[in-house]
Computed example of a mutant assay.
Amino acid sequence: MRERQAVRHRRRTREFEAFVAGAAGRLLHAATLLTAEPREDNPRARRLLTAALSRTYAAWERLRGEDPYEHTRQELATRFARTAWHRRGPRTGDGVLARLTPQERLVLVLRLYEGVTEEQAAAQLGLSAQRVRAICTRAVAAMRSRPPAPAGPVPKAATPP
């Protein structure tokens, strides 16, 4: 009996490690977009992803037939919403989506980066599809209205000798 459990545990661990090897990069990028941290320095995103992956690992046996990526993405979004959605005060972060509110970032990442339908996002966030559409539209408009970042110093033109 114990040997069978050990074999099952090793198989579960190998399957999970293979899943993480294939999905962790994309999930970390999504978490980084959510936290609005720079890609090179994203400790909140890494903690968020670690917590979501640990929940996925804990539920691994019950996920038979379900998509583990979908499960982890839902955990990531839920954890982000719990920690940041209702936070007041100045916006933090200097990532590409830093100027958006946490709710706008969450909807934008789910809809545009992850390709989640309005209906799925609405159900996951406890909002109506119309509200998700309005938040997404507002977030996209805010991102489009952003002035372009300076490109840095302009190189001097070469002068003939």
Rank of each mutant, 00 (worst) to 15 (best):
M1D: 11
M1G: 11
Q5H: 11
A6S: 08
V7P: 06
H9T: 04
H9R: 04
R10K: 05
R14E: 15
E15N: 09
A21I: 02
A23L: 00
A24V: 03
L27H: 01
L28P: 03
A30C: 07
A31V: 00
A31Q: 02
T32W: 01
T32G: 06
L34N: 05
P38R: 05
R39T: 01
E40L: 07
D41Q: 06
R44G: 05
R44P: 00
A45T: 02
L48V: 12
T50F: 11
L53Y: 05
L53T: 06
S54E: 15
R55L: 15
R55D: 15
R55T: 14
A58S: 14
L63T: 14
R64F: 09
E66V: 14
Y69D: 01
Y69A: 05
E70D: 15
H71Q: 07
T72H: 01
E75D: 04
L76S: 01
R79T: 06
F80R: 03
H86L: 13
R87F: 08
R87H: 10
R88D: 00
P90E: 15
T92S: 11
G93Q: 12
G95I: 10
V96M: 11
V96Y: 10
L97P: 02
A98E: 13
L100W: 05
P102M: 12
P102Y: 09
E104W: 09
V107M: 07
L108R: 03
L108C: 08
R111K: 07
E119G: 08
Q120I: 05
Q120N: 12
S128H: 07
S128P: 03
Q130A: 09
I135Y: 02
I135E: 02
I135M: 08
I135D: 01
T137A: 11
A139Y: 01
V140N: 02
V140P: 00
R144G: 11
R146G: 14
P148A: 10
A149E: 11
P153Y: 11
V154F: 12
K156L: 15
A158N: 14
T159C: 08
P160I: 12
